[in-house]
Design a protein around this nucleic acid. Structure first.
Length: 420
RNA sequence: GCCGCCAUCGUCCAGGGGACUAGGACGCCGCCCUCUCACGGCGGAAACGGGGGUUCGAAUCCCCCUGGCGGUACCA
């Protein structure tokens, strides 16, 4: 089996393109086939090394590898020209107004056999003689694809449904060249939440945007695998091995799917929480460009859905943050100073400065003061984190350490007394 | 216009003649848990686009309509 994936060198790898890449990859890996990567654009202006590299980078991030390529259609212009000349010599094509057109018979039809959609018939009466080469001699997409697929021995073509209507043209070129077409599978398109074709204005529409937004590659892979395909009624989380094992083109849906970032977020959160905290820290460090995040990562892990959630939630564990004034005003009311004083002395003495003793010490304060837990914990939270929203207060205090915690509580106390 | 594809909760995925009172998940709502926010647990609302057939029986098969999408380029 030889499968090819042919992304356009637009710079960004579209999510639909990523799904196509994934399905091609799953197909090849499942059957021990060869995956050929071709950069699909006959225009050297678009097919720049920078643009190509960005696509490859996105594929690598998704951990989708390939066996041959990347091969650029631009590099194959000579071969395309040869085959155009051959079609001309055979009489299968002719020149008109400088451009080369393929002869399409008036009668009959071309049948495209599609694994997902069955046989699709295209009557020739609705297809004109179409252009295969521009007047400057350069090949057009349909010609280039057919020639490349033939030369590379491709037997499986998995691509978006937007190519279905072009397929009979490619089949006709292939037959004119004396070859039989490969097996086709046209995937349903991906739409945005508004039902329109997914694009940049739907937010994170590219793999790069997803990466920047703090999604994990394994979560993205799992999620996009489920856009147009499902193993059964229940299974949602699948490892790459399970994906490879379970995938089948025959089970791919025929109807378009909507990319739902909320579900991706949820899934990403699940993957995030399953990470060992050292691994999470490693990824956070790569994402934020900071180091020494392990303690904070462990504390914040339960609360994050994406890597980008980390900083707003846990920055106070890494460096002191300004206090949110709304939070201060809501929490630092009567009783707050007493709670803070008590908490301070309890924390000053607790030994060792670890999770259970710290929790016991702070709960002791609640008991002694005979107040509700939040009347102690919220002032401490605001003093320490600057916000009413934070990871668990005991975990946070321990991660911060005794010295830093006491310093922040002291500052809050000082501020309270100046106001009073 | 012409050609083609598609049609189950708001969304994704199941179900492909009887097991359907249509299942699971996200999201939403309520309750529980709880130091905030989350996580988690429990419960709830929520769908077979319409009309004709075929059949003892249709979400499932056929036809029509409607709707959505794609193509119809010297774009890919």
């Amino acid at each position: 089996m030889r499968v090819r994936f042919a992304p356009s060198p637009t710079g960004q790898l579209h999510i639909g393109g990523a799904r196509t890449a994934l399905y091609n990859w799953l197909l090849a890996r499942k059957h021990g086939g060869t995956l050929v990567l071709r950069i699909e654009d006959t225009d050297p202006e678009r097919s720049t090394p920078e643009n190509v590299e960005q696509i490859l980078d996105a594929l690598r991030w998704l951990e989708l590898d390939w066996d041959e390529g990347p091969i650029s259609q631009v590099e194959r212009a000579g071969r395309h020209r040869e085959q155009i000349d051959r079609l001309l010599a055979d009489g299968a094509a002719y020149e008109a107004d400088g451009a080369v057109r393929l002869r399409v018979p008036d009668e009959g039809e071309t049948v495209v056999s599609d694994v997902i959609r069955g046989d699709v018939n295209f009557p020739h009466s609705s297809i004109d003689d179409f252009v295969i080469a521009r007047s400057d001699g350069s090949a057009l997409y349909n010609l280039a694809v057919a020639v490349d697929d033939l030369d590379m021995g491709i037997d499986h073509v998995v691509r978006g449904e937007d190519h279905l209507s072009n397929t009979p043209r490619q089949v006709m070129i292939l037959r004119a060249l004396g070859a039989e077409p490969p097996i086709y599978a046209h995937l349903p398109l991906l739409h945005g939440p508004d039902g329109k074709k997914l694009s940049k204005r739907h937010g994170a529409a590219s793999v790069q945007a997803l990466r920047d937004a703090g999604y994990l590659p394994e979560a993205v892979r799992n999620y996009i695998a489920l856009l147009g395909w499902g193993l059964d009624a229940e299974t949602t989380f699948m490892t790459t091995e399970q994906l490879v094992q379970g995938f089948s083109l025959e089970r791919v849906s025929r109807s378009p799917a909507v990319f739902d970032e909320q579900k991706l977020r949820w899934m990403n959160g699940r993957y995030l929480r399953d990470l060992a905290s050292a691994e999470l820290a490693r990824r956070l460090e790569a994402h934020t460009g900071r180091s020494g995040l392990e303690a904070a990562a462990a504390v914040a892990q339960e609360k994050m859905q994406t890597l980008a959630d980390f900083w707003p939630l846990a920055a106070f564990l890494v460096e002191r943050q300004p206090i949110d004034e709304d939070a201060w005003n809501r929490v630092m009311k009567e009783g707050a100073d007493e709670a803070l004083r008590e908490a301070r002395s309890a924390l000053a003495e607790v030994e060792p400065f670890a999770l259970e003793p710290v929790e016991a010490a702070l709960r002791g304060v609640v008991e002694r003061l005979a107040v509700k837990p939040k009347q102690v914990f919220q002032p401490v939270r605001v003093a320490v984190s600057g916000s009413t929203i934070s990871p668990g207060i005991f975990e946070s205090v321990v991660a911060l350490g005794r010295e830093e915690t006491l310093a922040r509580v002291d500052d809050a106390l000082a501020r309270l007394s100046t106001i009073a």
